[in-house]
Design a protein around this nucleic acid. Structure first.
Length: 420
RNA sequence: GUGGGUGUAGCUCAGGUGGUUAGAGCGCAGGAUUGUGGCUCCUGAGGCCGUGGGUUCAAGUCCCAUCACUCACCCCA
């Protein structure tokens, strides 16, 4: 038996790294005053069809959809925004003080061909700010995401920024775009894009299409007055924050609900999957799925990609777990004493372990070494009889005789020293 | 869904043109005058050679299929 295609197990010590990274991100959210929302891992299929958009790749070919025993069409969530907005409407959260600032962590599911750091079950964290369309919100969301990258000392990233306008001005732009492209010899993919989602033609990588795009009308030149003002304001605030960004008029996002601000943070560390996190504004989504008018703004950040970028830049190393002590007991009688010492040390709050296999002293010392423990607590016949332990500092090799009753104090002192 | 590459020990990989008991390094277990880890040395365990079929006297090696992994496209986290 194997894990299904496109899924994988996260084993120690990776799992430990994941938890630490998640903890640090949570702390950032706390500082920015975002609160957690947990939504179901599956939803009614209709939510994504209407929210994400019926002609998007996600809905057309990437959803894990099935019928439950009651005959309902259920879909494993492919993204985090639509469920949050659904919950916002369902629980009338627009009645709370706005804007409402939420975050989430959890697995997302997309049925697609696995590739480097692209999984059928992958993990995202993200934020959604509901009930406000101030450009300051856009800036805060982007800034918060960047703060997370900085928290992990990542360097090789670039913020791409664009505005795709509101539903009104984008519709006008679309027509103009179609007009410009319709008689050009585009590639096969773009032919169909032109019908389904003309904006997508803009980021085609085909060399020929790239050439044909010369002189193409740009969204940013065609958005309405309000959208333009909004976009300029967002840029202004980001600049004030000292944040560099690259205006990218070809940046188009693949989900239908986006309006106005769209952004992606890309890195060279990831190969073809170069987006660590991305998002934008979605002022029409709430109404689209049957709620009141409620503008929103958010991002989704790929945990796997964050972790990979950290590995590429060597930033995952500082994050390690330590064991305070490893008990080494030699001889049958001493084994039980060692066991009791282990319990005592753990009770005092120190992380500790011992060899439970009754191995030789030498083997136990190897175990202590491998465990990465700061101290080995050695109990032999003499120690057991006289009521003390040999406390060996595993990095220096220095060894102290410590009376049993002083052990906890000694360990506490050692930990304090280490902290300095 | 489309195209390329790869599947041999826990991991990284060797195994010309088919030929008898499938190897190395690392890791793991034990040991090197019976109380001390890391370095060194010795010994050992561990392999339906991804799976199924075919060609052949004979297949890890050749052919087909299939699955998985991987890279790219599409699209995204």
């Amino acid at each position: 038996m194997k894990a299904p295609r496109g899924t994988r197990d996260i084993l120690p010590p990776d799992s430990c790294l994941w938890n630490k990274v998640e903890g640090k991100i949570r702390e950032k959210y706390r500082i920015y005053n975002y609160q957690e929302i947990k939504t179901p891992i599956f939803e009614e299929t209709e939510l994504f069809v209407r929210g994400v958009g019926g002609t998007t790749d996600i809905v057309e070919k990437e959803m894990y959809t099935f019928q439950d025993k009651g005959g309902r069409s259920i879909t494993l969530r492919p993204e985090g925004t639509a469920p949050v907005v659904r919950a916002y409407i369902e629980h009338k959260l627009y009645g709370k003080s706005q804007p409402l600032k939420l975050y989430y962590f959890g697995p997302m599911f997309r049925y697609e061909r696995p590739q480097a750091w692209r999984y059928r079950q992958h993990y995202q964290t993200g934020v959604e700010v509901m009930g406000g369309d101030s450009p300051f919100i856009d800036a805060e969301v982007i800034l918060l995401g960047i703060e997370i990258l900085k928290e992990f000392n990542l360097q090789n990233w670039v913020l791409h920024l664009n505005s795709i306008g509101c539903s009104q001005c984008r519709a006008d732009y679309k027509n103009e775009l179609i007009e410009f492209l319709k008689d050009k010899p585009l590639c096969r993919d773009c032919e169909s894009r032109l019908e389904r989602n003309p904006l997508r033609v803009l980021d085609c990588k085909e060399g020929n299409c790239q050439k044909l795009l010369e002189g193409v009308p740009l969204v940013t030149d065609h958005i309405c007055q309000e959208c333009g003002d909004h976009f300029r304001k967002v840029q202004e605030i980001l600049s004030v924050c000292g944040l560099d960004f690259r205006l990218d008029p070809f940046l188009v996002r693949g989900l239908d609900y986006y309006t106005r601000t769209a952004f992606e943070v890309k890195t060279k560390d990831l190969g073809a999957q170069d987006t660590i996190f991305g998002g934008g504004r979605y002022d029409g989504l709430s109404e689209e799925i049957g709620g009141p008018r409620a503008p929103g703004m958010g991002f989704g950040l790929g945990m796997e990609r964050l972790l990979l970028a950290m590995k590429q830049e060597g930033q995952e190393r500082g994050i390690k777990s330590y064991l305070d002590a490893y008990v080494v007991a030699v001889g049958d009688k001493q084994l039980l004493q060692g066991w009791n010492t282990l319990r005592e040390v753990r009770k005092a709050g120190f992380s500790a372990d011992m060899d439970l296999m009754g191995r030789s002293l030498k083997s136990q010392m190897k175990g202590a070494n491998r465990s990465g423990a700061r101290y080995a607590l050695i109990i032999g016949e003499e120690e057991a009889e006289e009521g003390f332990l040999q406390v060996r500092d595993m990095s220096s090799g220095e060894q102290d005789k410590v009376q049993k009753e002083d052990l906890v104090k000694y360990l506490a002192w050692g930990k304090e020293e280490q902290g300095k």
